[in-house]
Design a protein around this nucleic acid. Structure first.
Length: 566
DNA sequence: GCCGTTTTCGGCCCGACTGTTTTCAGTCG
């Protein structure tokens, strides 16, 4: 059990207690324990019972529950609550717009015990008739359920890569295959993956199938499988898996085909290149050799989406896409000044250790009270600490930033003189996420027009597989960023990956700079930049158009010039 | 249930917003 698992168990317990109308302060204590554990750096596993009980928000009782969680992955109160609650009702708790109180009403009054039953109740107008509910609430619940059903069994790229690698390892461990590689959506680095695909080079597939029988991780679907293909799902994650096989000499061709969107192959055919038949009918050492034979530039898997191919062909070669090694600094990060886990100094030193030249710290602004957003005097304190640290860390540098909330009317939540005290301002929406396209677009446009806005943070507010972002007129947003010289971030958190990569080409066309920002709330969060780089590559992003791939002096000059205009 | 004490019980993180109300509960970040 990791800290995260324990936090999840406490949050679930709090929700279930609320669902069962328990003492509100008992509920609060679970929430409070979870909240405090979120701020904890060191793993609970391995701490002594006394140390655990000494933590903020953790008393004797919570310490015992943590011990039970580590032993049995649960504890009696949670077990009891779960037996009293139908699984479908527990699932309802994670629907957007539904909290424990509303779920309780639905469960008690309408006797609905599954998402399906709730959906039917919405469609029969039963929900709107309940006290405290209405037409709008009913419609938003209906949409939430449909969203949840659409996304069942899908994975974030981060999870897909980890699981696909596990499957790859277990196939290698059988000793039956010569080579196994990840293919499909995972290899193309799509932000959401609905099937894991792997390709194995093997002369006798039946040997492999034999080795996979009764494997704990894989459940075979006999009717969908065949002599050369294994189909089924992961036992734990309920994700579809396809293991395809080919003869070793066919590997490059099959891998290419399996790692391309249909639109890519169709584009090749439509533009008069026999890519598919070349790949199918010949032994090649590599995918590059196949592209060459088909008289095409060697498209990396990220670009095989049927989107940028024509542009690449016109230019005659694939641009050198952004790589992790190109990044020189890390912007948009949080520290313990707001809701981060590590101190400013820890964040800075770790960033320096990783070999970066600069760190942009941008804690939450004062409106984000839930996240400990910075009042003006805290901004001042942080700037003084940054000045001190910069003296000892030089030539490494901490840039003074803020993640300023974009309020409902599009204004930022500090006075101009405070905004002027930062090296850079990331403007982001965190509240009032349900606006329609016209209002949401106007709101962002106003924030972009603010002369102190350096960078637009996670433009749509989406959480992949969890909630849709608000709708935006992206052309107008990107046009405005071009006009006002505002950078757009690709928020690299695998749950966000926002700006969507499909809009990167238009941003590049308009000359808008992109920044790959991890939105790190702890040191380990820097690693997420990898996913941001994946998204940038899918959109054809290169190092020269990536703000944080610029060296410190160039970044500082750019920021200073921009601020002097403000 | 936890905490901080005025050691034996009272107080507990917060502001905005939405949709429902007709003054506010529930949800969210």
């Amino acid at each position: 059990m990791t800290n995260r698992d324990i936090i999840r168990a406490f949050k679930l317990t709090a929700s279930l207690l609320e669902l069962h109308a328990a003492n509100p302060f008992k509920i609060r204590s679970y929430q409070n324990a979870a909240l405090n554990l979120e701020r904890l750096e060191q793993p609970l596993l391995g701490m002594t019972p006394d140390e655990v009980a000494g933590l903020e928000g953790i008393g004797k009782g919570m310490a015992e529950r943590i011990a039970r969680l580590e032993e049995t992955e649960s504890f009696p109160e949670l077990d009891e609550l779960l037996t009293q609650t139908p699984p479908g009702v527990v699932k309802m708790l994670s629907l957007k717009g539904l909290g424990p109180k509303k779920v309780r009403t639905l469960w008690q009054s309408l006797k609905v015990e599954s998402e399906q039953a709730l959906l039917e109740a919405c469609e029969n107008d039963q929900v709107a008739a309940l006290k405290g509910f209405g037409k709008k609430t009913q419609e938003s619940i209906r949409e939430s359920i449909l969203f949840s059903m659409r996304n069942a069994g899908k994975l974030h790229l981060s999870a897909a890569e980890a699981l696909a690698e596990q499957v790859r390892q277990l196939l290698l461990d059988t000793g039956a295959v010569q080579r196994v590689e990840i293919a499909g959506q995972t290899r193309r680095k799509l932000e959401i993956v609905d099937q894991l695909e792997l390709l194995a080079a093997i002369e006798q597939p039946s040997v492999l199938w034999k080795a996979l029988e009764n494997h704990v991780m894989l459940a075979k679907d006999e009717s969908a499988s065949g002599p050369f293909v294994w189909r089924g799902h992961l036992t734990e994650a309920d994700v579809p898996v396809a293991i395809l096989t080919c003869r070793p000499e066919e590997f490059a061709g099959e891998w290419l085909l399996l790692s391309s969107a249909d639109a890519h192959l169709q584009w090749a055919a439509a533009s008069g290149h026999a890519l598919v038949s070349v790949a199918r009918n010949g032994a090649f050492a590599s995918e590059e050799a196949i592209y060459q034979e088909a008289a095409l530039p060697a498209f990396p898997p990220e670009l095989r989406e049927g989107m940028l191919e024509a542009q690449v062909l016109e230019q005659g070669e694939v641009p050198r896409l952004l790589e992790m090694a190109d990044l020189k600094g890390i912007l948009h990060n949080h520290s313990t000044y707001s809701d981060g886990k590590h101190t400013l100094e820890e964040m800075a030193r770790y960033c320096q250790e990783l070999g970066y030249q600069y760190l942009g710290i941008s804690d939450h602004s004062k409106t984000a009270a839930y996240a400990g957003g910075l009042q003006e005097f805290r901004v001042q304190q942080q700037h003084e600490e940054i000045d001190r640290l910069n003296k000892t860390l030089a030539p490494f540098k901490i840039l003074k930033g803020i993640e300023s909330d974009i309020l409902g009317d599009g204004s930022l939540d500090y006075a101009d003189d405070v905004l002027a005290s930062f090296d850079f301002v990331v403007a982001s929406v965190h509240s009032n996420l349900g606006m329609d396209q016209a209002h949401a677009t106007d709101r962002l446009l106003r924030a972009i027009e603010n002369p102190y806005t350096t960078m637009l943070g996670h433009p749509t507010g989406r959480l992949l597989l969890r909630r849709e972002g608000y709708p935006l007129d992206f052309r107008r947003i990107i046009d405005a960023c071009a006009e006002h010289n505002v950078i757009i971030e690709i928020n690299a958190n695998p749950w966000r990956l926002d700006l969507d990569w499909r809009w990167v080409p238009y941003a590049l066309e308009k000359g808008v700079l992109i920044s790959i920002n991890p939105d790190a709330h702890e040191k380990a969060g820097y690693a997420d930049m990898y996913y941001g780089v994946c998204m940038g590559r899918k959109g054809g992003l290169t190092a020269d158009k990536t703000f944080n791939a610029w060296p410190l002096d160039k970044v500082e000059t750019w920021l200073q010039k921009r601020r002097s205009k403000a």
